[in-house]
Design a protein around this nucleic acid. Structure first.
Lengths: 232, 232
DNA sequence: GGTTTCACTTGATAATAGTCAAGCGTCGCG
DNA sequence: CGCGACGCTTGACTATTATCAAGTGAAACC
């Protein structure tokens, strides 16, 4: 890895509150890999050889069973994934693919396990990371089981808007196909859901959305801190 | 707490590989509470004041939103719950109720956080616990999104049978109502699903089940290590 | 410029699951 | 015994979501 990259890696939030020695040790065996869009980074069921951290780009976590596929989450810069599998040397439960061309830091599982055993600060950072991931998964489970597709969409719109300036207006960060998978519905159903949101004064035109009546959408969505809470 | 109980608490798997001092400190402020069946132990959204560990009994984790309720999991002896919320002082994402009369060890959140900060061994045990909980949640999410109700039921039967002697025959450990919630379906649908399993030679009579044709059931269920894997 | 490709939409239909209502059987209790 | 409560089942109906098929429109490519 180039020293310029090394400098960048050291700043990853994940490595904060970790002894410099341990960070160095982990980065020593690590490499920074570029992946083109649509490429599969890891595959469900395989042994966990590397911890992956998204440096740049977007990665979709998904899983396939029989003839069905489902999206389990989307990771962006700073997010690590499959930490749980790497730490305890278990097979991956999820597959990952790059949604756009991405740069991924890959740290050998051994180094991670070694740092976990040697550095209490890192162990605590890992615990915090896992706690957040766990809470995210529980929220996603509640989102799936307690809401209809339309409600999930309404809440996604509100959350995404809130995270991007609350201007009541934005462009989709990825294809609607991907959004449909992310929300756990067929693309056709997403289309119909957008049509249904017309009654709540949500206007979708190509890749752009305008929320004209925030109150109406909020009333439909009924956002809830224990499902949608972000930093929570 | 009585010294007899204290002795029992020290043996909880959760406290293994934790410095005796820290265990003592946590147990000092803790108490052992008995809860009758159906009582709610914790409530979604409330601040996390205590870490709960099931000593005896069964606890259902669930959540309510609008007029819908869903079961997120069932905890038994040795399981702790809401560890993630306690550690980082966040509100509970789930509610918990006792399914049967239960004994619960309640450790003040402060003590847990203190031990986490002071004892690296405990921090690692916590991380392992969280990693398993996270992987469990991901499996549950896949189970929900990738399988139909009938498939979930078929897999539950296979898993439960395997965990209880693989005799192809057992009694339900709780009401079918609860099983329905656990599988994420209405009780009526569970009833119909049992009827549908007749075609696969599964015989349900009152509280007992007999799997007469394991191969047929397995073919329907298509169990999968990355969804159903237990120790995995 | 014309064609192809692909994302998206729309319509028709089917599978899956939830709701409401009625009925059955068991258990506990007066 | 008779009563009621409750867990469970069954039937009829509805809601939600998926699937298949056809069509539109816009960017991409030759």
């Amino acid at each position: 890895m180039r020293s310029l990259d090394l400098e960048e890696m050291r700043c990853i939030p994940f490595f904060r509150s970790v002894e410099p020695d341990q960070v160095e040790a982990m980065l020593r065996g690590a490499f920074l890999q570029r992946f083109p869009a649509h490429v599969e980074l890891i595959h469900t069921g395989e042994p966990a050889d590397f911890l992956h951290v998204v440096v740049e780009g977007t990665v979709e976590m998904f899983s396939v069973h029989r003839d069905r596929e489902t999206t389990l989450g989307v990771s962006g810069p700073g997010d690590s994934f499959i930490l749980a599998a790497v730490l305890f040397d278990r097979p991956y439960l999820q597959s990952a693919r790059a949604l756009v061309a991405s740069r991924i830091l890959m740290v050998p599982a051994d180094s991670v396990r070694h740092a976990f055993a040697a550095d209490a600060g890192f162990a605590r950072a890992v615990a915090e990371n896992l706690a957040l991931a766990y809470r995210g998964a529980i929220k996603e489970l509640k989102n799936q089981k307690l809401r209809s597709g339309l409600e999930r969409l309404a809440n996604w719109l509100l959350t995404y808007d809130a995270e991007h300036g609350s201007r009541g207006q934005f462009d989709f960060p990825f294809d609607k196909k991907v959004l449909a998978a992310r929300l756990g519905m067929a693309p056709e159903v997403l289309s119909r859901s957008f049509a249904a949101l017309g009654a709540y004064h949500v206007v979708v035109q190509g890749p752009s959305v305008v929320i004209q009546d925030m109150a109406a959408l909020r009333k439909l969505a009924q956002p809830c801190a224990t499902i949608d809470g972000t930093g929570l």
